[in-house]
Amino acid sequence: MNYGPDPKAIYPNEAIKSVCFIKNVITRKNITVGDYTYYDDANGPENFEQHVTHHYEFLGDQLIIGKFCAIASGIEFVMNGANHRMNSITTYPFNIMGHGWEKATPELSDLPFKGDTIVGNDVWIGQSVTVMPGVKIGNGAIVAANSVVTKDVPAYHIVGGNPAKIIKPRFSAEKISQLEELKWWDWSAEKIFNQLTELTKIIK
């Protein structure tokens, strides 16, 4: 018996080629994605990696995305390679232009480094969202369309805007704590299948 779509499939529903399970199209070692997390893009969801920019292995930063996340088209994860030196007279990156300017190559320690970018489980990210380096987005969070996320997002909170700010929590603090303990995304496929009614029930 099947208990939902095959988590190893590229397209969970072959009739909808705009949606793919990201984990199954990742080629970079510095990107990790959990089961069932999808990217929705009519222009080729299997090209998700093109939306992770300035991501260089020598810097060591990771993009880590949990399970069961829903990511809409136009996402951009800006990684630490986009950072310029900010403690000198100019921020201009002379070194990458060559022709002798490479003598101004900064030390890695001179560049701002924000660490890994981490998206929790069951996160919904709306269309055309930009996530800046080192941001942590908690489980169950919702990021409104066209937002620029510059700071960490608490679990089960809704954020939006540029820069993104907290709009409201999705549930009470007590309920959020319970959901964090529940960790339904770690259940077996069979258990999730059998509990779909509960998982999709409106919480009052």
Rank of each mutant, 00 (worst) to 15 (best):
N83W: 04
D35C: 05
A141V: 05
C69E: 11
E107S: 15
I75Q: 10
F48P: 07
Y92T: 10
G100Y: 02
A144C: 11
D122S: 07
L108S: 03
Q127I: 00
F58P: 01
E198A: 10
S177G: 12
K183M: 15
K114C: 07
D116T: 01
D61P: 01
F113Y: 15
L199R: 00
F94N: 09
A155D: 15
I65Y: 07
K17G: 01
K103R: 14
N83M: 15
P12F: 02
D122G: 03
T130Q: 09
G66T: 05
Y56M: 07
F77I: 12
I192P: 07
V25C: 12
D61I: 01
H51F: 10
I89Y: 12
Q50L: 11
I125C: 04
E190G: 01
P106I: 08
P7T: 03
V119K: 05
I64H: 05
A189M: 12
W184Y: 13
N146D: 05
A9S: 11
F94A: 14
I118E: 03
M1P: 08
N43D: 14
N2I: 04
K23L: 06
E174P: 06
N24F: 04
E174L: 08
L179E: 15
C69G: 10
N121M: 06
M132D: 02
H55G: 06
G120S: 06
N139Q: 01
G81S: 14
T37N: 12
I71K: 06
S88I: 07
T53F: 02
H157V: 13
R28D: 11
P93C: 13
G161C: 11
G4E: 06
I125A: 06
P106E: 07
L63N: 07
E76V: 13
I166C: 14
T150F: 02
N87M: 12
E14Q: 04
P163S: 08
I125Y: 02
A173C: 03
Q127Y: 08
S18A: 04
K183W: 10
E57K: 02
Q127N: 11
V159I: 13
I192F: 00
S73N: 13
P12K: 01
E181W: 00
K201V: 00
P12W: 03
C20W: 00
N80K: 08
Q178S: 14
W184V: 12
K175T: 15
G44V: 05
G44C: 08
P45A: 15
R28C: 09
K8M: 09
A72T: 05
H99K: 09
V78E: 13
W185L: 12
H54S: 13
D186I: 07
G120H: 03
P163N: 10
Q195A: 10
K183A: 15
I167H: 07
P154Y: 09
K175Q: 13
A189Y: 02
P5M: 05
F21W: 00
P93D: 12
N139K: 00
N43I: 02
P133C: 09
K191W: 02
I89N: 10
K136W: 00
S109K: 14
A9C: 02
I137C: 02
I176C: 15
L111Q: 02
R85P: 04
S128I: 00
N30H: 09
V129G: 12
E180W: 03
A141D: 01
F77C: 15
V33E: 12
M86Y: 05
Y92H: 13
A42K: 09
N83A: 15
G34S: 09
S73M: 09
A82Y: 12
